[in-house]
Amino acid sequence: MALFERPTLVRDEVYEHLRRAVLDGELVPGERLGEAELCERLGVSRTPIREALMRLTQDGLLVAEANKGVRVRRVSAAEAQGAYVVREELDGLG
């Protein structure tokens, strides 16, 4: 008997797509992300866009601004330096 594979949800695919775009620098720090523009670009409705934006905000990749929407979070120099220190330590373990 074959294993049952759950279908991928659109909201999860949108989340992964936007997450990767932020991490790869396709969406730059400070860039405003409008729901309507994302709907048009990705060809999906607003619901999966909203859900993905909420998750990315909870993950700390986006920042919600009252009456202004959502922007890609800027990383401070101290945060960047801390990330490099952690990465150096992790690379040394391999």
Rank of each mutant, 00 (worst) to 15 (best):
D59P: 08
K68M: 13
E89K: 12
Y84F: 00
L42V: 07
L62M: 07
V44K: 06
L61H: 02
V44G: 13
F4P: 04
V63L: 08
P29A: 05
V14N: 08
M54D: 14
V72T: 11
E88N: 09
D91C: 09
A66I: 14
G92N: 00
A64S: 12
E31A: 13
R87M: 02
A78G: 12
G34A: 01
L61S: 00
G92S: 09
R87V: 00
T57P: 02
L3V: 07
R46G: 15
R32M: 15
R55G: 05
V22C: 00
E26Y: 10
R32E: 14
E31N: 11
F4S: 08
R73V: 02
V63F: 02
G60T: 06
H17G: 06
L18T: 10
E31Q: 15
Q81H: 08
R46C: 10
K68H: 13
E35H: 14
E65R: 14
R6W: 01
V10Q: 05
L53C: 10
E65Q: 06
E13Q: 13
I49Q: 01
L33Y: 08
T57D: 14
L62Q: 08
Q58M: 13
G82K: 06
V75H: 00
E13A: 15
V85S: 04
E40K: 05
A36M: 06
E35Q: 15
L56V: 07
T8R: 11
L53H: 14
V28D: 07
L18F: 09
L62D: 04
G34R: 12
L42Y: 05
R6C: 03
E26A: 11
E31D: 06
E31R: 15
A64D: 15
A36R: 11
E79T: 04
L9Y: 04
D91H: 04
E89N: 12
A83N: 03
V44Q: 06
Q81Y: 15
A80Y: 01
V22K: 08
N67A: 11
R74Q: 13
V85F: 09
L53Y: 09
D91Q: 13
A21P: 06
T47G: 00
P7L: 08
D91V: 07
